[in-house]
Simulated scan of single mutants.
Amino acid sequence: MARRDYYHDPNAPAANSIAVAVSAFIQDEHDRILMIRRTDND
């Protein structure tokens, strides 16, 4: 099934489910930041 994102789309269909999301900022002692690339939004 193809997935489509409706970011700020006024014509988007009504939501029918809730997805849990978490954000975090991780920095080490050398001031480096851990970053990830999500596969669902690149």
Rank of each mutant, 00 (worst) to 15 (best):
residue 36 I to P: 06
residue 2 A to S: 09
residue 34 L to Q: 00
residue 10 P to A: 02
residue 5 D to P: 02
residue 4 R to T: 15
residue 9 D to F: 00
residue 14 A to I: 03
residue 31 D to C: 08
residue 11 N to T: 09
residue 25 F to E: 07
residue 41 N to S: 07
residue 15 A to W: 02
residue 9 D to M: 00
residue 22 V to P: 07
residue 30 H to E: 11
residue 30 H to C: 09
residue 7 Y to V: 10
residue 42 D to E: 01
residue 40 D to Y: 02
residue 25 F to N: 14
residue 31 D to H: 11
residue 20 V to K: 04
residue 21 A to Y: 11
residue 21 A to F: 10
residue 16 N to S: 11
residue 23 S to D: 11
residue 26 I to S: 02
residue 5 D to E: 14
residue 32 R to L: 15
residue 37 R to P: 03
residue 14 A to V: 07
residue 25 F to W: 13
residue 14 A to N: 13
residue 27 Q to V: 13
residue 35 M to T: 14
residue 3 R to C: 14
residue 6 Y to K: 02
residue 4 R to I: 09
residue 19 A to K: 14
residue 15 A to H: 15
residue 12 A to N: 00
residue 29 E to F: 03
residue 18 I to V: 13
residue 42 D to Y: 01
residue 31 D to S: 14
residue 41 N to D: 11
residue 35 M to N: 11
residue 39 T to S: 13
residue 33 I to C: 07
residue 5 D to H: 07
residue 24 A to Q: 03
residue 30 H to D: 14
residue 38 R to A: 00
residue 31 D to G: 14
residue 25 F to P: 03
residue 17 S to K: 10
residue 17 S to N: 08
residue 29 E to Y: 03
residue 42 D to L: 05
residue 29 E to R: 15
residue 38 R to Y: 00
residue 12 A to H: 10
residue 19 A to D: 13
residue 39 T to E: 05
residue 36 I to K: 10
residue 19 A to F: 09
residue 23 S to N: 12
residue 18 I to D: 03
residue 2 A to D: 15
residue 37 R to I: 07
residue 30 H to S: 14
residue 26 I to H: 01
residue 42 D to C: 00
residue 4 R to L: 14
residue 7 Y to L: 12
residue 5 D to Q: 15
residue 24 A to T: 04
residue 21 A to T: 13
residue 20 V to T: 10
residue 19 A to W: 07
residue 24 A to P: 06
residue 25 F to C: 05
residue 21 A to K: 12
residue 6 Y to S: 01
residue 16 N to L: 05
residue 36 I to Q: 07
residue 11 N to W: 04
residue 8 H to N: 08
residue 34 L to W: 01
residue 40 D to P: 04
residue 8 H to M: 04
residue 34 L to V: 12
residue 8 H to W: 09
residue 19 A to H: 11
residue 31 D to L: 15
residue 40 D to W: 04
residue 7 Y to F: 15
residue 1 M to T: 06
residue 19 A to L: 06
residue 1 M to F: 06
residue 8 H to K: 03
residue 23 S to F: 13
residue 6 Y to D: 03
residue 33 I to M: 08
residue 21 A to I: 08
residue 27 Q to S: 08
residue 31 D to K: 10
residue 31 D to Q: 15
residue 1 M to I: 12
residue 14 A to M: 06
residue 41 N to P: 12
residue 24 A to R: 05
residue 18 I to H: 10
residue 8 H to P: 00
residue 41 N to E: 05
residue 5 D to N: 10
residue 25 F to M: 07
residue 32 R to H: 12
residue 39 T to M: 06
residue 36 I to M: 06
residue 26 I to T: 08
residue 26 I to G: 01
residue 23 S to Y: 09
residue 20 V to Y: 06
residue 5 D to T: 06
residue 34 L to A: 13
residue 28 D to S: 01
residue 34 L to N: 13
residue 41 N to W: 13
residue 23 S to V: 06
residue 18 I to Q: 08
residue 21 A to W: 15
residue 18 I to E: 08
residue 1 M to G: 10
residue 29 E to I: 03
residue 33 I to H: 04
residue 33 I to V: 11
residue 32 R to K: 15
residue 5 D to F: 14
residue 35 M to L: 15
residue 11 N to H: 11
residue 38 R to D: 10
residue 10 P to C: 05
residue 21 A to C: 04
residue 22 V to A: 14
residue 14 A to F: 02
residue 32 R to G: 12
residue 9 D to R: 00
residue 25 F to T: 11
residue 15 A to K: 02
residue 15 A to P: 12
residue 9 D to H: 04
residue 16 N to V: 09
residue 22 V to I: 10
